[in-house]
Design a protein around this nucleic acid. Structure first.
Length: 517
RNA sequence: GCGCUUGUAGCUCAGUUGGAUAGAGCAACGGACUUCUAAUCCGUAGGUCGUAGGUUCGACUCCUACCGGGCGCGCCA
């Protein structure tokens, strides 16, 4: 909605002869008295024209309201120098009932979203859960807003860590001590007992956990599959031709300092082995060669030191285009601290190892786990209390949102039994709680579009909560079953839309929308 | 030491990219159950936005310095 109105607004301002330095933007006023949308374009204009923003706002507001585009459709008023836009209740009703689907601005980027990409050397932990919730919700949000997006899991199945995994499992089988720098978790003993290829088994476990977490990937790319000599040679050739590699101390280096890295990085070690970094460059060039124009990576904060060198590499290989954040985004998620009833939880009671994502899912369920991991901005360090997450109380927003959905389903079911009211002629008389709920539903497209633009799934968690709040209020104050036929008809329309919007909101969060609770 | 990140109500966090009187939830206190499912709703209280400067019509937001938290600084992956 917003971008369409924004486009209209800019068009009208242009025809009125106002020259804007940047297109006028719309925002949601914090105070509901200030209408549904607001613009501060008057402040920018006043600066250029050296006039008083308040007077300017009054002039423009009048002009806008009289313009053919907005006349009779939108109330435009000048307050404190802002211009506020308000839909009448009739207009809200029309928007709700006449809206046929939602169209988003066209996008042309081909997006590859890579996330989790855990080492196949052990079980996933709660941090992986956060990247999984973040990545999968982001995928759902991007897909729902018309983006071309694919998700991918990169398997680090080559190199020392995997070697150590094999050695550790082998040691247990041979009943010899596990090497000092090997893996010592209880799961190593499980792997030894199972007898299968430990790497494949770990991958299966990870895959199963991610599936239980409702997280799905279009592709799983193995590091091994990229080890063909021609792919590696290709990367080395490009760097050499651009004069970005050099030999020193028996190793081959990438001159990443050329692109702002703190120091140059080794590509081929003096013992002749490829570094993990070189393989990552091969992988990223492969992404670009597959035709993706926007790469998004989600990494844990413990890898942020790696950002500069990979950016440098991608810029060197993919060209200037990929130097821009617009084409290569690296999202850093802060780590998660687990608690249970206020006490820190690090270790699993069962195994004594780091508590796994699977154990968290088993304990609190996928819905709650996903909500609490997605609720906060990726930049914030999450303090996640497992005891709160399972509480069936008002302390728990998961139930609050799902309960709102279940309540609406219940009313709809009862209404279906008792017979739905006939459509009424004439315009509905909307009360404030009805209008507020309608507006919250209409804002869904703005909310999801902005969450997509900002790569910020947590904004959808807040939106969903806000919608649930409006639903609960409506439920308290606007009975449906006992309403008069006219009221019942309009309320039925509203809760049908509200239910569907709640369901869509829960869906992009990867949460279920129960019909009964 | 250097780099990234973070600091907002007692607690957990938002803050629409520089706008209007800084917002929610929980906890606290007071109220509402002959209900469409009380897993709910209403009200009250709670703040020098880490500190100090700077930029401008206007700063939680941008810049600088300092203080505190987290993480990272391998020819590991």
């Amino acid at each position: 909605m917003k971008w369409q109105l924004q486009a209209q607004l800019n068009h009208v301002l242009q025809t009125l002869g106002y020259e804007l330095p940047t297109p006028a933007g719309l925002s949601f006023p914090a105070n509901p008295d200030f209408g549904h949308y607001a613009t501060n374009v008057t402040f920018q204009l006043a600066k250029i024209q050296k006039t008083n923003p308040k007077l300017l706002a009054e002039t423009i507001a009048t002009q806008l309201e009289q313009s053919p585009t907005f006349k009779g459709k939108l109330q435009c008023s000048a307050v404190n120098g802002f211009i506020n836009f308000t839909f009448s209740n009739d207009q809200l009703w029309a928007l709700l009932t006449q809206l046929e689907g939602v169209s988003f601005p066209k996008t042309t980027e081909k997006i590859l979203l890579e996330y989790v990409s855990a080492n196949p050397t052990g079980p996933l932990h709660i941090g992986h859960g956060r990247w999984a919730a973040l990545g999968d919700s982001l995928y759902r949000i991007l897909a729902a807003t018309g983006h071309q997006v694919q998700t991918e899991f990169y398997i680090n199945d080559a190199g020392n860590q995997v070697q150590k995994l094999y050695e550790s499992v082998q040691a247990v089988k041979a009943q010899t001590p596990i090497p000092e720098d090997g893996y010592h978790g209880a799961y190593i003993h499980d792997l030894a007992a199972l007898g299968d290829d430990p790497l494949k088994q770990n991958l299966k476990w990870q895959h199963d956990t991610l599936a239980a977490f409702r997280t799905h990937f279009h592709s799983w790319v193995s590091e091994k599959s990229l080890q063909g000599p021609e792919k590696i040679q290709n990367v080395l050739d490009i760097l050499r031709q651009k004069g970005l590699s050099f030999e020193s101390e028996g190793a081959l280096w990438f001159r990443s300092t050329e692109f702002g890295d703190d120091k140059d990085r080794v590509l081929i070690k003096s013992d002749g082995a490829n570094t993990y970094f070189l393989m990552d460059l091969v992988y990223h060039l492969d992404k670009i060669q597959r035709g993706f124009t926007l790469l998004i990576n989600i990494w844990g904060a413990d890898h942020h030191g790696y950002v500069k060198r990979v950016r440098a590499g991608v810029q060197a290989l993919g060209g200037e285009q990929f130097a821009q954040d617009a084409h290569f985004k690296i999202m850093i998620g802060q780590l998660v601290n687990l608690f249970r009833g206020g006490e820190p939880v690090r270790m699993s009671k069962r195994t004594g190892d780091m508590i796994t994502l699977q154990e968290v899912i088993d304990e609190i369920g996928t819905d709650a786990a996903r909500y609490f991991l997605i609720e906060k901005s990726p930049d914030s360090h999450v303090e996640f209390d497992l005891a709160v997450a399972v509480q069936a109380s008002s302390e728990n927003p998961v139930y609050y949102i799902q309960y709102a959905h279940a309540r609406l389903c219940n009313v709809l079911a009862k209404l279906a039994d008792q017979g739905t009211p006939e459509a009424q002629s004439g315009l509905p008389q909307l009360g404030p709680d009805e209008a507020a709920l309608i507006w919250q539903c209409l804002k869904w497209s703005d909310a999801i579009w902005e969450a997509a633009q900002n790569l910020a799934p947590h904004q959808m968690a807040h939106y969903a909560w806000g919608l649930a709040k409006k639903v609960q209020l409506f439920y308290e104050r606007c009975p449906v079953l006992k309403a008069s036929p006219a009221e019942q008809h309009q309320r039925l329309e509203i809760i049908k839309h509200a239910k569907e919007t709640l369901r869509k909101s829960l869906d992009v969060l990867g949460m279920s929308a129960p019909e009964k609770m």
